[in-house]
Amino acid sequence: MSQYTSAKLITPPREEESIYPYRRVWRSLTIELGVLFALTVLIYGAVGIAGFGVPRPLSGGLNIALALTPAALWGIFSLWAERRVPEGRRHLLGIAVISALTANAIAIPVLDWLQPAQWLTFTGVFDRILGYAFTVGIIQIGLQYLVVRFITWPDAYRIREDAIAFTTASAVGYITVLNLYAVWVDAPNADVVALRVFTNTSLALLAAVVLAYGLAELRFQPKLYYTLPLTLLIAAVLIGVGITFRTNFSSGGFVLGVGGTRPLFGLGFSAGLVFAGMLSMLFLFNVSERQSREAREGRGE
């Protein structure tokens, strides 16, 4: 009589997991923007809708804390995370600090002199977009480009995502100073500060990612050298579009009696713009990466 024994199960040899040696910048960006958005909704809901009053002595401190929140989130989810990966990126803190200093030393005095909000308020939408793009936008993105270019170019770029890490570091440093300045000058309520910080930061990060695409293309596809100026122009116009429509959406409509503002429309617009913009840029980065890989494979490298 035959005896049957159960077949021995042989464990297949484990494939060695390849460790991705860099910080995943898209994940960091998503977490930072997500947490910032959640905080904004929470504070707006508590102060603006539920009517939770912030004691006057605490108001200034809370506003400054809110203005520093994007920098803190970036510090935790980007800068600190960079130290926990085998091949961390260097210069990030330096880029952020120098961008903050240039914002304070150049951008704020120039924007104070230009006063775009004063002369653009009474112009049409198209003129307003161009006006903001070629004043606020070009100064912001131009300074960020110069800081990133002189600190990192070209040897710090190993993969395309490096460009995102550098430009977003610059954007965070720059926009933190502008947020602090806005809080210092206006001293509004916490819910208004939260909305302003989110809209400013998300727009700055989106523009920074667009600029990063141009830098990455120039570094890895130098034949397309015109991509960098083109993306810088798009980033500046994007800032112009963001500021113009955010203001339009936030303004009160024509109502009988006292017309209030509609800050949630502005928040929704900013969140939608950044979500759609980031998805588009992720798609473009992936396409470029795939094309580079296919080109290399085609050459047999």
Partner: peptide, 18 residues
């Protein structure tokens, strides 16, 4: 050369834009 051209065009665009 392509790097230089890219950066040169970008700086020129910033100046013209301003």
């Amino acid at each position: 050369r392509q790097f230089r051209l890219g950066h040169l065009l970008t700086v020129a665009l910033i100046v013209v834009g301003l």
